[in-house]
Amino acid sequence: MDKLRQVIEEYPRWQDLTVYIDRIELFIESDFSSAQENAKALLESIAQEICKQFTIEVEKNISINKLLGKAFNCF
């Protein structure tokens, strides 16, 4: 988690992601499914942002797997 915080500090445009990290850290001991949901939302948010920057069209109800596939394909 520290590594991710460090990366986000380096690149301020990703700063909104700290909300998810805070939530994951908050829930990881007490409510794992919430921590997991937030981890998924974190990944989704990064993948969405990458697709947006590469002007890749993303369907509204796309699955996380497909979305990540699209984000990786941008590279």
Partner: peptide, 23 residues
């Protein structure tokens, strides 16, 4: 607990990779 930790840490690693690679 170990599996849970693994799940979260691997997710975070992918996040770090995506951001670093993108930047």
């Amino acid at each position: 607990k170990t599996e849970q930790e693994f799940l979260i840490s691997s997710t975070v690693t992918v996040c770090v990779f995506l951001i670093r690679y993108h930047e």
